[in-house]
Design a protein around this nucleic acid. Structure first.
Lengths: 204, 204, 204, 204
DNA sequence: CATGAATGAGGGTTCATTCAT
DNA sequence: GATGAATGAACCCTCATTCAT
């Protein structure tokens, strides 16, 4: 019994370790891929960023696409969870949208490496992975829709085209990746604030 | 003399033909590349879209990068010219910005194939081409800055962060490529109108 | 009759012109090929050295190999003719060999562009051309053999291995191409003299 | 500790194996290239001579030029080492030069495949490799200069142009590659002896 | 689990050659 | 005779993937 317990604990420890390792690998992979682009980042690049050999990577992931898909999955799920918490908070729609915008921009900047991957999944993924990714993106986007609808229903937002406005907001935010540099004069937090304040005008 | 003249005319005719052909090739190349992505679109793909052989492509362009660079150059120059005309028109800043937004969205949708290429040039182009592209993009962006500044000076626009607002506007517009489909319910023109109207709010 | 005559003269003039042109082309081709090597010199390189287009070259020569073969043929025939004159001169074997060495070195240096081509014809020419070239080289080499034999018969030369000595002499001379530079301190004539004097020792 | 030791031994064994393989590859590559010439020998040719695939070659060498450069490096270094031993032997200059000539001809004939590559490195190698090769050749040549100078100083050799004589000797020897065939009537050793004996006359 | 080695299917590029005009 | 354009066969090189050890 005691031995069994130890084993179980050991297992769960090992599993945790493995999970942690996988996550590390995903982060590193995402970093390389977001810098070079999917097609230009080779498995060797990714492996050496991890101080591993290519062969080892294939122990953890079946193929390149799978590896990168897992990256998406990881970060999108994380982001989605945070966003869903925001929706359920006891806040006004205005406050929720502000929070959502600030949070999203935080991801876009801090997790630039990973979120970067999201542009044009059609050019990267095959059927199966693609469907899953598009679904999750859909879920993510709908978070914003829900907040906006809530605001419209409560009469604090105004818009005849809420879907288009949601896309304007997302587009404006995602574009930040394009020009943001940590050496710029404004901190990510300041940028996020300004964006939140400004973009809210689209709904007033 | 007469013969000489004929020759010259013939020359200029041939040159015109060649120019026209080059332009056609650029359009087709842009189409393929915008669909598959730079790295996945092979020179064979591009050539067969043109009902040509790969070798023929290399008669006109030194290498793949050069070919795609010329695509950028072509469309960016065109767009820039149109935008510069707008700046010089005898219109109010509000009207100018509306026109600029509508025009830009027109490009983003109709020339999707080409403008699409603009995302992340760093991952595609080497030093020299990259610098030229970034310069031209800069010029393009500054058109919007000029209109915005004009509005601020005349007191019709208000913003403490005009640069960030300009980037929100561009981001919102460029994102359209991401989701626009000709089968959607709204026509490009309607979309453009709605965007123009909404985005102006960011400056009021 | 008179017209006919004119025509004939004209013909012969044209032919001469054509011949001259061919020779010019061969010289230029040889120059390019000797600098870059057969495989690295493209037909475009050769054509542009001649201020022509590639197509024009093909009017005069069937293919690249043919063109280069003609180069060999031209220079080898020339050299052979000069050498044969030397053999027939009314000179002592020593004087003949001196003259032959000096003449050969003159070719090796001044016609470097063309003689250069002679190394390793096996790697360049197909069956037919190769046989013709090897034959002519054989003829050329045998000139030296004849002079040496004459010297041996007259008792002014001594060697138990005349063939090997002939090859030493040719090797020593042809190697000059490898290091000769017009900017060196010794003139071609001086070099030739020294070589003639020294190499004769091999037969004394 | 024991495990560690085993590992280290294994490492060194594997490394040795790898080194040996590399050397084999260089020999085969040299063979193919010396037969077909650098530009005509394809990587496929070289690979199939080794019963390998092209890809495997690229696992060991960065590019074709590097592969062939390593061939040069290998054989030149070997030859240079042997020659340097000769210079340092306790022999008379005449005996040293004889030995050097015989040794060089041994290389020229037996390692024909590799030494063959030395003609015209300018047409094959880029800047960096070229410089290294020319340097090493220089070193090699200077071995002969040193022996000759020693002989001149001791009064056993006579020459007003020792540099030119050195080049005659090298040229005569290297030319052997051009005509030597294992089916000829004279053995390499006999040829080497005759050359040594004859070429010494140039310095007496 | 991990590594070094190898494979094989392309992809970009070059170039001799051809041909309509 | 000459030109611009086009072809197609190779060639060098890359890289995701596999596998014996």
């Amino acid at each position: 019994m005691c031995i069994r317990l130890e084993k179980e604990i050991a297992m769960s420890l090992r599993k945790k370790k493995t999970m942690k390792k996988r996550r590390e690998m995903l982060r590193s992979a995402a970093k390389v891929v977001s810098q070079k682009g999917y097609d230009r980042a080779t498995m060797d690049d990714i492996a050496s960023e991890l101080l591993m050999t290519k062969g080892a990577l294939y122990y953890y992931f079946d193929c390149k696409e799978e590896l990168i898909y897992q990256c998406h999955e990881l970060i999108l799920s994380e982001a989605l969870k945070v966003m869903e918490e925001i929706v359920l908070m006891d806040l006004s729609p205005v406050e929720k949208l502000e929070k959502a915008i600030i949070t999203h921009i935080g991801f876009a900047i801090n997790e630039k490496d990973i979120l970067n991957l999201i542009l044009k999944p059609e050019q990267t993924f095959e059927e199966d992975h693609l469907r899953l990714i598009l679904e999750k993106r859909q879920q993510y986007d709908s978070i914003f829709d829900r907040i906006i609808m809530e605001g419209l229903n409560k009469g604090v937002f105004t818009s005849s085209e809420p879907k288009l406005v949601r896309m304007m907001i997302l587009g404006a935010m995602n574009w930040i990746q394009t020009w943001y540099s940590p050496h710029g004069k404004q901190s990510p937090e300041v940028i996020a604030k300004i964006y939140a304040e400004s973009l809210l005008k689209l709904l007033l």
